[in-house]
Nucleic acid binder design. Structure first.
Length: 169
DNA sequence: GTAAGGATTGGC
DNA sequence: CCAATCCTTACT
Protein backbone atom coordinates (compact mmCIF):
# COMPACT_ATOMS: atom_id res chain seq x y z
CA UNK A 1 0.00 0.00 0.00
CA UNK A 2 1.57 3.19 -1.08
CA UNK A 3 -1.48 5.21 -1.95
CA UNK A 4 -1.54 8.65 -0.45
CA UNK A 5 -4.94 9.52 0.99
CA UNK A 6 -6.69 12.20 -1.07
CA UNK A 7 -7.72 15.55 0.29
CA UNK A 8 -11.39 14.63 0.56
CA UNK A 9 -10.58 11.91 3.12
CA UNK A 10 -9.93 14.77 5.53
CA UNK A 11 -12.97 16.86 4.58
CA UNK A 12 -15.36 14.96 6.83
CA UNK A 13 -16.47 15.24 10.42
CA UNK A 14 -13.65 14.58 12.89
CA UNK A 15 -15.68 11.78 14.50
CA UNK A 16 -15.47 9.91 11.18
CA UNK A 17 -11.87 10.75 10.36
CA UNK A 18 -10.36 9.99 13.78
CA UNK A 19 -11.42 6.30 13.86
CA UNK A 20 -10.87 6.15 10.10
CA UNK A 21 -7.19 6.90 10.56
CA UNK A 22 -6.65 3.83 12.74
CA UNK A 23 -4.64 1.36 10.68
CA UNK A 24 -3.57 3.98 8.14
CA UNK A 25 0.10 4.66 7.45
CA UNK A 26 1.90 7.82 8.54
CA UNK A 27 4.80 8.24 6.11
CA UNK A 28 7.80 10.45 6.73
CA UNK A 29 10.68 11.27 4.42
CA UNK A 30 13.70 12.50 6.35
CA UNK A 31 16.40 14.95 5.30
CA UNK A 32 18.64 12.14 4.10
CA UNK A 33 15.93 10.83 1.77
CA UNK A 34 15.10 7.82 3.93
CA UNK A 35 11.37 7.08 4.07
CA UNK A 36 9.86 5.46 7.15
CA UNK A 37 6.27 4.29 7.53
CA UNK A 38 4.38 3.99 10.79
CA UNK A 39 0.97 2.38 11.27
CA UNK A 40 -1.38 4.58 13.26
CA UNK A 41 -2.89 2.77 16.24
CA UNK A 42 -4.22 5.54 18.47
CA UNK A 43 -6.01 8.83 17.73
CA UNK A 44 -8.18 11.38 19.51
CA UNK A 45 -10.84 13.72 18.13
CA UNK A 46 -10.99 17.41 19.03
CA UNK A 47 -14.16 18.96 17.76
CA UNK A 48 -14.92 22.63 17.37
CA UNK A 49 -15.13 25.68 19.57
CA UNK A 50 -17.71 24.12 21.88
CA UNK A 51 -15.27 21.33 22.82
CA UNK A 52 -13.47 22.77 25.84
CA UNK A 53 -10.70 20.20 25.47
CA UNK A 54 -9.95 21.51 21.98
CA UNK A 55 -7.26 24.19 21.80
CA UNK A 56 -9.43 26.22 19.44
CA UNK A 57 -12.21 26.57 22.02
CA UNK A 58 -10.50 29.72 23.33
CA UNK A 59 -10.67 31.34 19.94
CA UNK A 60 -8.57 31.94 16.90
CA UNK A 61 -5.01 32.71 17.98
CA UNK A 62 -1.64 32.48 16.21
CA UNK A 63 -1.25 29.02 17.72
CA UNK A 64 -4.67 27.64 16.75
CA UNK A 65 -5.17 29.50 13.50
CA UNK A 66 -4.43 26.49 11.30
CA UNK A 67 -7.26 24.52 12.90
CA UNK A 68 -9.75 26.94 11.35
CA UNK A 69 -8.59 26.20 7.84
CA UNK A 70 -9.89 23.51 5.53
CA UNK A 71 -8.89 19.94 6.45
CA UNK A 72 -5.80 18.17 5.20
CA UNK A 73 -3.11 20.19 6.97
CA UNK A 74 -0.86 19.55 9.94
CA UNK A 75 -1.22 21.23 13.34
CA UNK A 76 1.85 20.80 15.54
CA UNK A 77 2.39 22.28 18.98
CA UNK A 78 4.97 21.99 21.71
CA UNK A 79 3.85 20.60 25.05
CA UNK A 80 5.68 20.61 28.40
CA UNK A 81 8.55 22.42 26.75
CA UNK A 82 9.87 19.31 25.02
CA UNK A 83 7.41 17.28 23.02
CA UNK A 84 5.96 18.03 19.59
CA UNK A 85 2.42 16.75 19.14
CA UNK A 86 1.05 16.16 15.66
CA UNK A 87 -2.58 16.71 14.76
CA UNK A 88 -4.38 16.49 11.42
CA UNK A 89 -6.80 19.31 10.73
CA UNK A 90 -10.05 18.02 9.24
CA UNK A 91 -13.41 19.29 8.05
CA UNK A 92 -14.53 22.51 6.46
CA UNK A 93 -13.01 25.95 6.73
CA UNK A 94 -13.89 27.94 9.89
CA UNK A 95 -14.83 24.77 11.77
CA UNK A 96 -11.85 23.94 14.01
CA UNK A 97 -11.55 20.18 14.15
CA UNK A 98 -8.40 18.06 14.41
CA UNK A 99 -7.24 14.50 15.02
CA UNK A 100 -4.37 14.04 17.44
CA UNK A 101 -2.14 11.17 16.32
CA UNK A 102 -1.41 9.77 19.78
CA UNK A 103 0.26 6.55 18.79
CA UNK A 104 1.91 4.58 16.02
CA UNK A 105 3.10 0.97 16.08
CA UNK A 106 6.43 0.45 17.77
CA UNK A 107 6.48 3.85 19.44
CA UNK A 108 5.17 4.35 22.96
CA UNK A 109 3.56 7.71 23.68
CA UNK A 110 2.81 10.78 21.58
CA UNK A 111 5.85 12.68 22.84
CA UNK A 112 8.23 9.95 21.77
CA UNK A 113 6.38 9.70 18.49
CA UNK A 114 7.09 13.36 17.79
CA UNK A 115 10.75 12.79 18.57
CA UNK A 116 11.00 9.74 16.29
CA UNK A 117 9.35 11.71 13.47
CA UNK A 118 11.77 14.61 14.05
CA UNK A 119 8.92 17.10 14.16
CA UNK A 120 9.40 20.81 14.74
CA UNK A 121 7.56 24.10 14.25
CA UNK A 122 8.17 24.09 10.50
CA UNK A 123 5.55 21.36 10.12
CA UNK A 124 2.85 23.80 11.23
CA UNK A 125 0.41 24.10 8.31
CA UNK A 126 2.10 21.40 6.19
CA UNK A 127 -0.22 20.16 3.43
CA UNK A 128 -0.72 16.39 3.63
CA UNK A 129 -1.92 16.19 0.04
CA UNK A 130 1.27 17.69 -1.43
CA UNK A 131 4.07 17.52 1.15
CA UNK A 132 7.23 15.67 0.18
CA UNK A 133 8.24 14.99 3.77
CA UNK A 134 5.06 13.87 5.53
CA UNK A 135 1.84 12.32 4.32
CA UNK A 136 -0.68 9.57 5.06
CA UNK A 137 -1.20 6.41 3.02
CA UNK A 138 -3.94 3.83 2.93
CA UNK A 139 -3.44 0.76 5.11
CA UNK A 140 -4.96 -2.54 6.12
CA UNK A 141 -8.33 -1.91 7.77
CA UNK A 142 -8.65 -2.69 11.46
CA UNK A 143 -11.49 -5.05 12.42
CA UNK A 144 -12.23 -3.79 15.92
CA UNK A 145 -11.60 -0.26 17.09
CA UNK A 146 -11.84 0.46 20.80
CA UNK A 147 -12.77 3.77 22.38
CA UNK A 148 -12.12 5.49 25.67
CA UNK A 149 -11.99 8.92 27.26
CA UNK A 150 -9.40 11.32 25.92
CA UNK A 151 -6.15 11.57 27.84
CA UNK A 152 -5.05 14.58 29.84
CA UNK A 153 -8.12 16.77 29.40
CA UNK A 154 -9.70 16.64 32.86
CA UNK A 155 -9.48 20.40 33.01
CA UNK A 156 -12.19 20.68 30.34
CA UNK A 157 -14.92 19.52 32.72
CA UNK A 158 -17.13 16.45 32.86
CA UNK A 159 -19.13 17.02 29.71
CA UNK A 160 -16.07 17.12 27.49
CA UNK A 161 -13.50 15.02 29.34
CA UNK A 162 -15.85 12.04 29.40
CA UNK A 163 -16.51 11.90 25.66
CA UNK A 164 -15.30 8.59 24.22
CA UNK A 165 -13.29 10.32 21.54
CA UNK A 166 -10.07 8.33 21.86
CA UNK A 167 -9.76 5.53 19.30
CA UNK A 168 -7.25 2.67 19.37
CA UNK A 169 -6.78 -1.05 18.87
C1' DG B 1 4.68 11.45 43.38
C1' DT B 2 7.10 14.92 40.76
C1' DA B 3 10.73 17.59 37.96
C1' DA B 4 11.87 18.78 33.57
C1' DG B 5 11.25 22.30 29.88
C1' DG B 6 9.48 26.21 26.40
C1' DA B 7 5.60 28.47 24.40
C1' DT B 8 1.14 30.38 24.87
C1' DT B 9 -2.19 32.86 27.12
C1' DG B 10 -4.50 35.98 30.16
C1' DG B 11 -4.15 39.11 33.90
C1' DC B 12 -2.37 43.26 35.62
C1' DC C 1 5.59 42.65 32.32
C1' DC C 2 4.70 38.16 35.00
C1' DA C 3 3.08 33.71 36.14
C1' DA C 4 0.01 29.83 35.46
C1' DT C 5 -0.92 26.40 32.46
C1' DC C 6 -0.15 22.62 29.46
C1' DC C 7 -3.54 16.70 24.47
C1' DT C 8 4.04 14.11 28.40
C1' DT C 9 7.78 11.41 29.89
C1' DA C 10 11.05 9.31 32.87
C1' DC C 11 12.70 8.96 37.11
C1' DT C 12 12.56 8.00 42.39
Amino acid sequence: MTNRLPLNFFLRDVLEVAPGLIGKILARRFEDGRIERYRINETEAYRGMDDLACHASKGRTPRTEVMFRQGGTVYVYLIYGMYWMINIVVGEENVPEAVLIRGVEGVKGPGREGRVLKLDRTFYGENLATSQRIWIEDGEPVAVIKTSKRVGVEYSGQEWSEKLWRFYY
